[in-house]
C-alpha cells in the first residue's frame, strides 16, 4: 500500500500546512522517519499512535519548538515564505506567537501557573503589540468566554483551578490571536471522563463556529474519532496509514491500525 498522497483534483485551495520528509534522530533513536503531512484550511487532522510513535515530536515541530534533522515545513500564509525550519529563532518565535496556537497535555507547560488566567491570555496579545489595558481585558475575556471559561474567575491563577479549567485557559490563550492553526497535544488526557467530554465539546464548538484548522494528537482513539476529519496513524516514527476518519475506524487497512482500533474499549 502506498502512502504517497494523491493530489486532490477537486479541492482547489492550497493546503495551509505542508510538512514533508521530516526526520529526527535522538542519538540511536529514530523519532521521525521521513514523515509528511498536509493540512487543508478548516479541517481537523488527527494523529494517533502509542507512546514513542513520534506523534508528539511531530506536533512540536509544527509548533517550531524543535527542529528536525531533515525536512521542510511551509504555511500558506501571507508574509510566511519558504521553509519555516530555516527561520531564525526570533522569526520562529514571532510566527508561533501570532499564527500558531497550542494546547499541551500538561498545563504547566503552557501556562504561567501563578499569573492570573486572564493575564495568561493577555500575554499573547501583549507579544503581538497590544498596549491598551482595556482592550487587553476585553479580548482576554472574549477568548476565555469562547473557551467556555467562567468569567467571574478570569483573574484567578491557573494553579487554583481544576484540570479542565486549566485546559480552557490554555485554549483561550491559544485562540486569543485567532491563529491560522491550532495544535492540540493530548488536550484531554488526564482529565476525568466527564470533564474530557466537556472540553472536547468546547473544541468541537470552536471548530464549528470558527472553522479553525486543527491538528490533534492523542493516543485516545475516542478523542480522535470525535474530533478529526482525517487521521494519520503513526508507529515508530513512521506513518503506517492515513485516511478519512470514518474509514480508519471502520475499515483499517494496516495490521497495526486494526490492532489499535480493535483494542479500543
Amino acid at each position: 500500500m502506498t502512502l504517497a498522497l494523491d493530489a486532490p483534483r477537486l479541492v482547489q485551495t492550497q493546503p495551509l500546512m505542508v510538512l514533508s520528509g521530516v526526520s529526527k534522530r535522538y542519538g540511536p533513536v529514530v523519532a521521525l522517519d521521513d514523515v509528511s503531512a498536509e493540512v487543508y484550511p478548516g479541517e481537523v487532522l488527527g494523529i494517533v499512535g502509542e507512546s514513542g510513535s513520534g506523534k508528539s515530536t511531530f506536533l512540536r515541530m509544527m509548533n517550531l519548538e524543535e527542529l528536525p534533522d531533515a525536512g521542510t515545513y511551509t504555511l500558506d500564509l501571507p508574509d510566511t515564505p519558504g521553509n519555516l525550519f530555516e527561520l531564525d529563532r526570533f522569526a520562529r518565535r514571532m510566527l508561533c506567537a501570532t499564527r500558531i496556537g497550542i494546547v499541551y497535555q500538561n498545563p504547566h507547560q503552557g501556562l504561567l501557573m501563578r499569573n492570573s488566567s486572564s493575564g495568561n491570555v493577555a500575554e499573547r496579545l501583549l507579544i503581538a503589540g497590544e498596549r491598551r489595558f482595556a482592550v487587553l481585558r476585553e479580548k482576554a475575556g472574549d477568548a476565555l468566554a469562547a473557551s467556555e471559561f467562567p468569567l467571574d474567575r478570569m483573574d484567578a491563577p491557573p494553579i487554583e483551578l481544576s484540570g479542565g479549567m486549566q485546559q480552557r485557559v490554555q485554549l483561550a490563550k491559544a485562540i486569543a490571536l485567532e491563529p491560522a492553526v491550532l495544535l492540540l497535544d493530548e488536550p484531554t488526557t488526564g482529565l476525568d471522563v466527564s470533564v474530557q467530554a466537556l472540553v472536547l465539546d468546547t473544541l468541537k464548538r470552536l471548530q464549528r463556529d470558527r472553522r479553525i484548522t486543527m491538528v490533534i494528537v492523542s493516543h485516545d482513539l475516542g478523542v480522535i474519532r470525535t474530533m478529526a476529519d482525517r487521521v494519520m496513524v503513526m508507529r515508530r516514527g513512521q506513518v503506517v496509514e492515513q485516511g478519512l476518519s470514518d474509514q480508519i475506524f471502520q475499515d483499517p487497512q494496516h495490521a497495526y491500525t486494526q490492532q489499535l482500533v480493535h483494542a479500543k474499549l
Binding site: 529563532r89 526570533f90 492570573s116 493577555a122 500575554e123 483573574d155
Partner: peptide, 19 residues
C-alpha cells in the same frame, strides 16, 4: 533581551493593575 521579548514585562504590569 536579544529578541526584545518583553511580553512578560508587560504581563507583570497587567497583573499589577488587575490585582
Amino acid at each position: 533581551h536579544a529578541d526584545a521579548d518583553y511580553g512578560r514585562m508587560w504581563l507583570q504590569l497587567y497583573e499589577q493593575i488587575v490585582r
